[in-house]
Amino acid sequence: MISSGSGKIKIYFYSSETNINNFKSLKMEFDRYLSKFGPYEFQPFSSRAVFEKQVKGKENCLLLLSSWHYRHIHKNYALKPVLTGVRNGKKYQRKILVSSEKPADIEAKPGLVASASSLQYTTSALKGMLKKFAEHTFQVLTVPKDIDALMSVGFGMAKLAFASENAFDELKGVNPRLCNKMKVLAEGEETLRLILALPRGFTANRKKMVDMIKNMSMDSDGRKRIRMLGLDGWQELDSSDRSKLES
């Protein structure tokens, strides 16, 4: 029997890469699904600070967080990566910077960037993608979804969009005319998708819990839930993934 002090094992979720604003639906759907397996509770967060405060010092819990976030906190929080999310069979994803303006104009003055990722993540990724971002000040408009960020450029609300390559490809399929107006100005490094991590002091039934998450894609109810996180499955990490993640 798995049990923590409060009787329920919590799965804490925060993503710096997506502006998750369907907390109510996420919580309800995940709780309903997880209850089939035992006393589990899904707890999504909209704030990195609140998430970190909640998980600090907790041992019998699972954490779902972006690979970027994991890299920043795994030492201080004594975390161990267990699984990574998969989409279209791929563990890695790439962020891109898209604009409808000429690269020279962007270099001269970046302007407003629409992004569905957290401000910290967007700023850090952009500075790595385009040197000019380290020199100029730029504003970020946080939007709910990658597709909103891309449409913001297409319809002239923002000069640039920071979004995933997947989202751009999907939008190309839906509205090619709009995407023809946009150009990819820069590409980020490939990074692992969402990470499932455990605290090093985790004492509950590790195998049962990890299998529960890993097997979500095996049944239609589980598949629907992980689609809500923008994934279609989970995979274990190999040594190369681990070294990239913890380097």
């Binding site: 997506t18 604003n21 369907n22 109510k24 639906s25 759907e29 989409r87 709910p144 979804k145 990658d146 597709i147 999907e170 598949r223 629907k224 689609r227 809500m228 996180l229 923008g230 994934l231 279609d232």
Partner: peptide, 14 residues
């Protein structure tokens, strides 16, 4: 429906 679009939905009735 596009299953992946579920991640973009704010409110789902199921």
């Amino acid at each position: 429906y596009r299953e992946m679009a579920l991640s973009a939905v704010n409110r789902i009735i199921e």
